[in-house]
């Protein structure tokens, strides 16, 4: 019967992802266009932060997805190491550069926001520092993938690195908190949202977050499809060489 694991079969995955890709891509652009236009042009200025507050429509979703992408890579790595589903390993590989770009977007928009608000482009604030460290983890992970030729060996080793790296990333987060208490405002989002931001900012932000999630899904699907094709091609070439 049909189960989620069926989509671990590369061919099934190609079929499903091929059908999903246009929809997620279209929905993502719709959400991002709506959310960003709404956020940038149809919300009032914040009483303290003025117009600069609008950068949250890029900053917050990118920062969320930077972390979620790593979590997705962790889950995919575990699935590969435990159940040996190739699609899972390739999805983890595909997600890494996307996560890295989201991390960089979060850092850059943060710097642009920090300049007017705190008077400095960069501060060794715990959140900023943690994101910088997360960038290093992404670099290491991507570098290890590209350094190893055999795809299964690379998938195994990067999987192990992802698990160990996740533990150390969480540890670093606490260490950095301990090290410096920081300037950064509290989370923009929480269940008890009355504490944080008002509805006028909240709804366009939600739309932008949805847009970023869909963008991530679309990019990962696209990149995973490419990885599957590349993997298949290299297998065919390897066999041809061996005669």
């Amino acid at each position: 019967m049909s189960s989620l694991w069926e989509y671990a079969n590369p061919q099934k995955f190609m079929g499903l992802s091929g059908r999903m890709l246009p929809w997620t891509a279209a929905l993502s652009s719709l959400c991002l266009t709506t959310g960003l236009i709404w956020g940038f042009f149809f919300t009032p200025d914040d009483f303290r932060q003025g117009s600069t507050v609008r950068i949250i429509y890029l900053h917050v979703p990118a920062a969320m997805m930077a972390i979620n992408a790593w979590v997705m890579m962790l889950v995919a790595s575990l699935v590969w190491l435990i159940r040996r589903h190739h699609v899972s390993a390739l999805a983890a590989k595909a997600a890494a550069p996307v996560g890295l770009i989201f991390t960089l977007i979060a850092l850059v928009t943060g710097a642009l926001w920090g300049q007017p608000m705190w008077g400095t482009w960069w501060a060794w604030d715990p959140r900023l520092t943690s994101f910088l460290i997360l960038t290093l983890f992404y670099f290491g992970y991507i570098a290890l993938w590209s350094a190893i030729e055999d795809p299964d060996t690379a998938a195994d080793l990067t999987g192990v690195l992802c698990i160990v790296g996740s533990v150390f990333a969480v540890l670093s987060r606490y260490a950095v908190n301990f090290w410096n208490q920081g300037l950064h405002q509290g989370a923009s989002l929480s269940l008890d949202r009355q504490e944080n931001i008002s509805d006028v900012f909240w709804f366009p932000l939600l739309v932008c977050i949805a847009g970023f999630v869909l963008l991530f899904v679309a990019l990962v699907l696209l990149r995973t499809r490419t990885e599957i094709r590349a993997r298949r091609l290299s297998a065919l070439l390897a066999r041809e060489r061996m005669g």
């Binding site: 079969n9 590369p10 061919q11 099934k12 190609m14 040996r84 190739h86 599957i228 094709r229 993997r231 298949r232 297998a235 065919l236 066999r239």
Partner: peptide
């Protein structure tokens, strides 16, 4: 694999088709 040899878990899923 064209002559019935083993293809490996990844390639076997394609059953000879190129995706």
């Amino acid at each position: 694999p064209e002559q019935g040899g083993p293809a490996g878990a990844f390639d076997a899923a394609f059953g000879g088709d190129f995706a």
